[in-house]
Amino acid sequence: MDKFFPIAPMDRTSKIMSNPFTTIIAICSIGLIWLIPYIFSPRGYKVTPKGIIIQLKLSSHFISKDKIKSIKLVGSIEPGNGITWLSGQFGYAGLFALKSGSMARVYATCWDNMVQIQTDNIDPYLLSPQDPVNFVKSVKELDRLKSGSR
């Protein structure tokens, strides 16, 4: 004959963990882990007569044409660790230590065909436009406008 043995009642920890409120908090926390990187991820770059606008989902970052010292194609970059902001889920944004030992401010979605912009600041910008060659040409035209206006 089979004998049935019920499980013991839940202890305090089990009761807390199985509480619907705890489940809601866990779901919201996971949602924030995904939402915050999405909000600050790069969405595109706009070259304007005044400089470059790095468009993020909720905000933007501006690089004045007067602060741009040089721009060049650098190809693939080997990333190191992200120091600030985010990396991975929806792109890369913020200050990064690179495998080469240098630092860069990265606003990109991939590490291939990168464009490096050197400004007055020590750390360069690394961007990943879909068409890096035309992006560089457009920014260099800003330099002609800048030098032609002086």
Rank of each mutant, 00 (worst) to 15 (best):
34 W>S: 09
13 T>C: 00
15 K>A: 03
22 T>V: 11
31 G>S: 09
26 A>W: 04
17 M>H: 03
31 G>I: 09
15 K>F: 00
33 I>A: 07
38 Y>G: 14
42 P>S: 13
20 P>I: 11
28 C>I: 11
31 G>H: 04
16 I>V: 10
41 S>V: 14
17 M>V: 10
12 R>E: 08
35 L>G: 08
20 P>S: 09
14 S>L: 08
39 I>G: 09
30 I>Q: 03
25 I>Q: 03
18 S>R: 07
12 R>H: 05
40 F>C: 15
39 I>E: 11
34 W>F: 15
30 I>V: 14
32 L>M: 15
41 S>N: 14
18 S>E: 05
31 G>E: 06
24 I>R: 08
36 I>H: 11
40 F>T: 14
25 I>K: 09
34 W>E: 06
19 N>I: 00
34 W>N: 09
37 P>D: 13
30 I>A: 09
16 I>T: 06
34 W>I: 11
22 T>W: 01
25 I>M: 12
33 I>F: 10
24 I>D: 01
26 A>N: 08
23 T>E: 01
41 S>T: 15
19 N>S: 07
30 I>K: 04
40 F>P: 10
41 S>A: 15
23 T>I: 04
23 T>N: 01
22 T>Q: 07
14 S>H: 04
27 I>Q: 01
39 I>A: 13
32 L>N: 12
31 G>L: 08
33 I>L: 13
27 I>R: 02
26 A>P: 04
28 C>S: 04
13 T>I: 10
22 T>F: 08
16 I>H: 03
35 L>D: 08
23 T>Y: 02
27 I>D: 00
31 G>A: 13
18 S>G: 01
33 I>H: 05
35 L>M: 14
27 I>W: 01
29 S>F: 01
38 Y>T: 15
35 L>N: 07
28 C>L: 14
34 W>Q: 09
28 C>G: 05
14 S>K: 11
38 Y>P: 14
24 I>K: 08
18 S>M: 06
14 S>R: 09
14 S>N: 05
35 L>Y: 10
38 Y>H: 15
15 K>P: 00
24 I>L: 12
32 L>Q: 11
35 L>S: 07
12 R>V: 08
15 K>D: 00
24 I>P: 00
13 T>P: 00
22 T>G: 04
23 T>P: 00
41 S>L: 13
22 T>M: 08
12 R>Q: 06
13 T>L: 05
37 P>S: 14
22 T>A: 13
26 A>V: 12
22 T>K: 03
42 P>F: 11
20 P>H: 07
